[in-house]
Design a protein around this nucleic acid. Sequence first.
DNA 1: GTCTATACGGCGATAGAC
DNA 2: GTCTATCGCCGTATAGAC
Lengths: 188, 188
Amino acid sequence: MAGRQGDTKAEIRRVAMELFTEQGYEATSLREIAERLGVTKAALYYHFRSKEDIVRSLFGDHLAALDELIAWAKTQTPGPRLRTEVIDRMLRLSVEHGRRAMQFALANQHVVRDLHPGKENVHERLNTLFEAITDPDATVQEALRTRVALLSINLTMFAAQGLDATDEQVEAAAREIAHRLAAEAAHG
Amino acid sequence: MAGRQGDTKAEIRRVAMELFTEQGYEATSLREIAERLGVTKAALYYHFRSKEDIVRSLFGDHLAALDELIAWAKTQTPGPRLRTEVIDRMLRLSVEHGRRAMQFALANQHVVRDLHPGKENVHERLNTLFEAITDPDATVQEALRTRVALLSINLTMFAAQGLDATDEQVEAAAREIAHRLAAEAAHG
DNA sequence: GTCTATACGGCGATAGAC
DNA sequence: GTCTATCGCCGTATAGAC
């Protein structure tokens, strides 16, 4: 009940992000978040419709940006050039949202997966993106390499946990790994 | 000695594996599992100490095998040969346990992560493995490539969802991707 | 507009009867 | 080995204080 009444909503988001990332989504109760802020959990319901809605407010922008990327990719012709460009755009998305946020998303992927601002879940949306950038006559091996190339961006950020690396080093490694995998998908 | 206990316990495991994989761990209640078997949820507590314990009974063997792999790796000298061998053993582990089980583990990684037959969680155990196979003087880039190489095995199995591929094709692709990443880690 | 008090059904878990 | 009954906590909902 401090004097910081105006930014309660932002405070909830900050504390939720912290606890969700440290302990996981299910292991963090609304009572826990509320107590940290010195309010009752009912107060959270003034600012957010549900617990899931808090996560939505943390990742909605990123998911919308992902949808934009998919929509754009669908207008392009599959090929090595498109794959390279999509990887760069995906990397930019992940970097902008922050390594910490990506780590939360990976650790709680079952929660992020079913955040549905639209109607498809993240799995289905990613599948759409994969199909848009994969050659129609690609072998299974090539298709898998393309998919793994894209997913390796976030996997690299995940792998960097417990490693003493700067954000720039992680970003550079992620780009390099993804691009190599994508290049091999073309002439593997 | 065993009587009918073996049957019921096995049935619980079968139904739990089914529902956990389809709907996720948190979205599946013990009442749901019990009702499918025509018993009350309290009856499940005769066979298992907790909900988490059911998952432990499904993945304990795999986690124990992972610990064996780590213990073995720690007795070896880091280098390209060791990395190749660890990848092959890891792949064998994942294949033996089945793609379906690996998909469950990836979709519910927050649950599997905190299954502690010992005391370290899966993240910490994997970190131990990474350190055992990475050269002490490796750059951040090289260390990340080694980590991503190992993690790419399960990532490939994950990426194969929604793709019309046989188990053999997925396994071959996983091996090829992991080995290439590991090879690049040596002379990147 | 911002928050508290209170209540609800469902959850995982336990105690004890049969 | 399975049951009923009950526990405390959870996310959620709403009435109403200021």
